[in-house]
Design a protein around this nucleic acid. Sequence first.
DNA 1: GTTGCTTTGTCCTGTGACTGGAGAAAGCCA
DNA 2: TGGCTTTCTCCAGTCACAGGACAAAGCAAC
Lengths: 396, 396
Amino acid sequence: MRRMTARPANAHQARLLRLLRDGGPNSRAQLGDQVDLSRSKLAVEVDRLLETGLVVADGLAASRGGRRSHNIRLAPALRFLGVDIGATSVDVAVTNAELEVLGHINQPMDVREGPVAVFEQVLAMAAKLRASGLAEGFDGAGIGVPGPVRFPEGVPVAPPIMPGWDGFPVREALSQELGCPVMVDNDVNLMAMGEQHAGVARSVGDFLCVKIGTGIGCGIVVGGEVYRGTTGSAGDIGHIQAEPDGRPCACGNRGCLEAYFSGAALARDATEAATQGRSAELAARLDEAGRLSAVDVAAAAAAGDATALDLIREGGNRTGQVIAALVSFFNPGLVVIGGGVTGLGHTLLAAIRTQVYRQSLPLATGNLPIVLGELGPTAGVIGGARLISDHLFSPA
Amino acid sequence: MRRMTARPANAHQARLLRLLRDGGPNSRAQLGDQVDLSRSKLAVEVDRLLETGLVVADGLAASRGGRRSHNIRLAPALRFLGVDIGATSVDVAVTNAELEVLGHINQPMDVREGPVAVFEQVLAMAAKLRASGLAEGFDGAGIGVPGPVRFPEGVPVAPPIMPGWDGFPVREALSQELGCPVMVDNDVNLMAMGEQHAGVARSVGDFLCVKIGTGIGCGIVVGGEVYRGTTGSAGDIGHIQAEPDGRPCACGNRGCLEAYFSGAALARDATEAATQGRSAELAARLDEAGRLSAVDVAAAAAAGDATALDLIREGGNRTGQVIAALVSFFNPGLVVIGGGVTGLGHTLLAAIRTQVYRQSLPLATGNLPIVLGELGPTAGVIGGARLISDHLFSPA
DNA sequence: GTTGCTTTGTCCTGTGACTGGAGAAAGCCA
DNA sequence: TGGCTTTCTCCAGTCACAGGACAAAGCAAC
């Protein structure tokens, strides 16, 4: 079945589609208030959109003291796929055209198995969502991968934690398999777009979105647009030096932030503490292989374990020092903290805040909120849907 | 005498004015090639510009095998003023509409004397340039000040090194005195715009411009536009922590980059080395008050003094470490090093390069040139002219 | 029910922006 | 002098758009 064959024919139509996406159903009059076009011109464009089937008019709204208005809304059958590929798990979700999540699956997975195996799994998950009746097909898909991406082509470049992916034509391959347009981006950028669309970053033009998962990355939004850098590696803050001649890092350098704090580093440090008998609480959570995960540390911290709390605080301090530097440099209007280690929540946040507020200049921190992401694991998939809808809702 | 009363009436005219500014005189046909308008429409807009007097047609170009074309150029009487206020000196220059420097004066000065005294001096310098016959008046002025600026209003905010300036309405006051439109920005942003217009950063979309003068700052250009941050303090990297619990800094914190390397820090360290007898070369340059300046260090280094070279190298290393972090974060296409301490040149550059190439990821540094600014002290004033011309050459 | 008022949506015409072609002007070359 | 090229101008036709007139549809007061 072919879907969404039409695209907006001009900037007006694209604008209208985005308004309907972000603001939900609207009357012609309400649209006119937001769009600075005469009612006649607006009517023409809306009619054309109705003809293409991209939007539909269904039912009448309640009267506001005069003639009742028609509800104009995006085609209710439109479906976007959001895919967030992490280091150790995948999230796949379907949304409608308003980017509301209709169904969401999370499964463990290992990126290092390579793109072929991973996409087999992703396609199976997508098929499952479709089979459950949530979608008859997909009109577009936005994919996030945990590494730098050459954005225009949708190809990962030199990704440190997923070596088999270098140069794999993700966009092209998935577009073929799914039979719909596909856009690919860094997972951190997707999270930023998610929080921008439906989370804490609504209405903020310039902000940073720090994602602490298996690694650490940072989404950069400038004037409402994701900034990707010259080679697509902007925001790659995991390998900023946090300690001169410090711990060795997987990247070959020493003292990288990621070597001190990230899901992986936290798990390793906690395991060490547990096996050295520094924390009974942590030791009790060791698995058969004698290992701990970041989730265990979060649980131990929630139970009040001092060692776990110390690990989190120390990591938060390191991260906070780096963020403080970025805040001085970038002067954002908001800093969002998110990612897999959400359980660490407020202990982590407090440590980061302390460092930033202490080290950055008052002018940069004066009105700077530093908050946790609001969407959790759905930020990435919503960001994916947002990414592809931005693409499709732009002039052909 | 009233000047440049007209402004471009629409985006087409603005575009044409900028093309003429950046590309020099052009025929209608050449303009048409760059502007994607029909020849008829183009002719209409050019005619309107000719009517307003913003552009003039003077003479015929050589034939290229057919009818000779008219030379269309910006009005030759247009004059912009570029003012670059540093911590210890001012640069004032006049340019024509193509932003070519026609005259340039530099004078020592102390910002701490406050805006009134400083502007008295600036106005005198501008009058001198005018008196020398280079300009009959000014059509606009771009001013750079060494501190953060609330850009839309042109007002310095909480500038650390120039306390008397906080909230002083620079734009309004100067506009009144000069009788022409004025725009105000951070001096570092001006330098970035200068190098972008006429220096090493031509044709680079995303780059960083690190200015090492009395302090250290960084101009950020994203997609060809200067990025100023939420409160106008973006690029304020002098107070990024370079050393935990390090040297006390004038800002009240400890370990700031500026406490280790900047014109002021370098002078202080060199003076110390000289008085402690660690360098005869430096000691020979002490002034009557027993002090050295950054220029003395540069001279000593040029003479091969090991202590001076060490100081520069050490400072370069610190600066390079911070820049490495910023490169990882921002992934620029170019890094420009400039500012008062140009004499330190290649020793400094080598130290910075070493750190950046060693600490940043290959993807970010692979094609990353790190170069000295090309314009020296004229970068700022050209940037000022560029700033105001961008403003004036935009639709009214 | 009727009347007046409000809101929503449609229709129509006039205006200005813009394109593309025809051709004039001006130059080169043989 | 006649072809060929480039540059520039003029003109008519097309399209985008605004804004007013008007129709449709609803509410409320009488």
